[in-house]
């Protein structure tokens, strides 16, 4: 190991954060860029399924809550793009990578938000699963990412509570409303479990990320936390658990659960979800529609700069005269 590498590993081992100006192995930088930009893209693409419901929210209070949530998510995207930029990549480059498919976003957003109940299920389960992961990332080794996670987690727990409260309202409502809640739970439960990624034994990036303390807990451990916390929440809603194999295991101190349909997981990641194409196409379409606005902004700023320079030149000419 070079002295730089030694110093880097010492920091990792003693839980000292790595900061943007510090030396870091190229693979560490690449790994972080991949992970944080993927996280940023997920926040941004995630505004599509939920944004889809803003205009149809069935009460003004819920509409305001949903608007505020979607806005928070876009804000998370913004922080995370900034955090990634500290690693020497521009937002334009990241967006280009998203649009050409070389960067990914969370596959959960390839599932359609079909009903109003899905807005509740997404807040409760998708944000809920995200929090479990992100709480653990508050201790990630890269300083800007860890700090972004601390800020983001506070808002995510609001989202989860609001999503759960929406479900509760449905479950306390009419039989149709309760059926809507059950249906949404059934469709989003398993995809939420898949958000933690493949089993540790199958995960391509896990081992190295753990060694560098980019990841702090394994996929399966995080998933177990989520499974455990969700059982009581489902019970309290009075809904049926979608996993018929769910069963408390006294010896492990955890719930045993049924196996995830990994074929579905890989199928959706590989383009067979209901919304894969639309999500990306929407992003590209909006980006292209906005190009004249971005060009106008740049042109205006250029003109202003030229005017300022001209004014200064006139002033100094006058002074000479």
């Amino acid at each position: 190991m070079t002295p730089e590498e030694q110093n880097f590993m010492r920091k990792i081992e003693t839980e000292e954060k790595i900061e943007p100006k510090d030396w870091m192995p190229e693979a560490y930088r690449k790994n972080l860029i991949r992970q944080i930009s993927q996280h940023a893209h997920s926040e941004v693409i995630g505004t599509q399924p939920e944004g889809n419901w803003i205009t149809r929210a069935p009460s003004l209070r819920r509409k305001a809550v949903l608007l505020a949530k979607v806005q928070d998510e876009a804000g998370h995207g913004l922080y995370l793009y900034s955090a990634t930029e500290t690693l020497g990549i521009s937002r334009d480059e990241m967006i280009a990578a998203l649009q050409d498919g070389s960067a990914k976003y969370a596959s959960i957003f390839n599932y359609p938000a079909q009903t109003w109940g899905d807005v509740g299920a997404i807040g409760w389960l998708v944000d809920g699963a995200a929090i479990v992961n992100q709480v653990s990332l508050q201790r990630t080794s890269y300083g800007p990412y860890a700090r972004a996670m601390i800020r983001i987690c506070k808002e995510e727990s609001f989202h989860q509570r609001q999503g759960y409260e929406l479900m509760l309202e449905l479950c306390r409502g009419t039989p149709e409303q309760k059926a809507m809640a059950q249906d949404s739970l059934n469709r989003f439960y398993w995809p939420a479990l898949m958000m933690f990624g493949p089993h540790d034994s199958e995960s391509a990036h896990s081992a190295r990320s753990m060694q560098w303390k980019i990841k702090r807990e394994s996929n399966d451990d995080l998933r177990q936390k989520f499974i455990d916390q969700t059982v009581k929440q489902i019970e309290f809603l009075g809904l049926e658990h979608p996993d018929k194999a769910i069963c408390w295991n006294e010896a492990r101190g955890h719930y045993d659960s049924g196996e995830i349909d990994w074929d579905e997981f890989y199928a959706v990641i590989n383009g067979n979800g209901h919304c894969n194409r639309q999500r990306l196409q929407h992003h590209i379409k909006v980006h292209e529609e906005g190009s004249w606005v971005r060009e106008a902004l740049a042109a205006y700023n250029e003109k202003q700069k030229a005017r300022k320079q001209q004014a200064e030149a006139n002033k100094s000419n006058q002074n000479v005269a």
């Binding site: 305001a64 979607v70 806005q71 876009a74 913004l78």
Partner: peptide, 26 residues
Amino acid sequence: ISEWVRNGPFLEEDIAYGNVALDYIG
């Protein structure tokens, strides 16, 4: 205005529109 959310020319504008929509709904 809320129709602009997820449709703005860049992310900052998405957020700004969300803000304005939220003011009007309020």
